[in-house]
Amino acid sequence: MAEIFFWEAVRRAHDEEMARDPMVICMGEDVGVVGGTYKATQGLYDKYGPERVMDTPISENGFTGLGIGASFLGVRPIIEIMSVNFAWLALDQIANSAAKVRYMSGGQLTAPVVIRSPGGVAHQLGAQHSGRMEKIFMGIAGLRVVTPSNPKQAYGLIKSAVRCNDPVFINEHEYMYSMKGDVPDAEYFHPLEGSEVARMGRDVTLFGYNISVHWCLQAAEILSKQHGVEAEVVDLFALSPLDRVGIKASASKTHRAVVVEEAEAPVGVGAEVIAIINEECFFELDAAPVRVSAANVPIPFNHKLEKAAIPNAQEVVKAVLKMLGK
């Protein structure tokens, strides 16, 4: 077990898969000579050459479609979209080609592509570089959506996604590439479905994913130390399909649920998780489930406003105390 940066974990997964299988390629803007905006593909261009580490033109829909077409014939592309904000331009190929081709061909054709992209609110990147698009992707039937909250997950999710025969979207976070964490030395495959209990508790469940898992863990510490409340934290690393069993198990154990999301509330992860709780275990609840979400605004440039627009651990604590009547 070694403690490595998130970006190193991403890079290691690429390197191992490319070394194993000559059909695995990676592509995207500046992934080659530059080594990736977040160093996720550093050194791979020199090792595997331009045919397999492709610096693409700035044509998101075009190169995503190219990767999908190549995957029809057995190539296993890992497509990096430089920022999730640019994935809007590739939505046609992701939603209409990759996600639907297996179904509408009656199972004849599959699109085993991996599409990775960093999103989230970083630091004063402005409205057009602070998008959180997981809600868009998780609404597309035929597309798997996963989102790592730590380097181990990042490594293991990419490994599984490359080998899985379904298209997988991996939602990363711009803020998390420099985060450190333990990654097993031995090869490791993370499941693409399910959820993980990141902290055990009995009084309330905090559902988080990606960066919001960290806010939940911080909030749980504060709740425990200062308020005597033991929160369980469930890490929803798989956003599509969501883990109904895991969500039900924790919500019916603690009888209270708070969903914490970095994105705006409408049509989002929180709405979906709460709907599942209602469907699966409504009568087990002691309180109405709530969401802690971003303000429904384009992310402002001003840092004070930017901070006010997205949730944090304190807001999670407040929501829990309110729910408990404290």
């Binding site: 075009g62 995503t64 479609g65 190219l66 077409g69 190549a70 029809f72 057995g74 209409n96």
Partner: peptide, 12 residues
Amino acid sequence: GPFPLAVGMAKA
């Protein structure tokens, strides 16, 4: 839609 898919098949 098929344009880039065709180019991708050619890549493969």
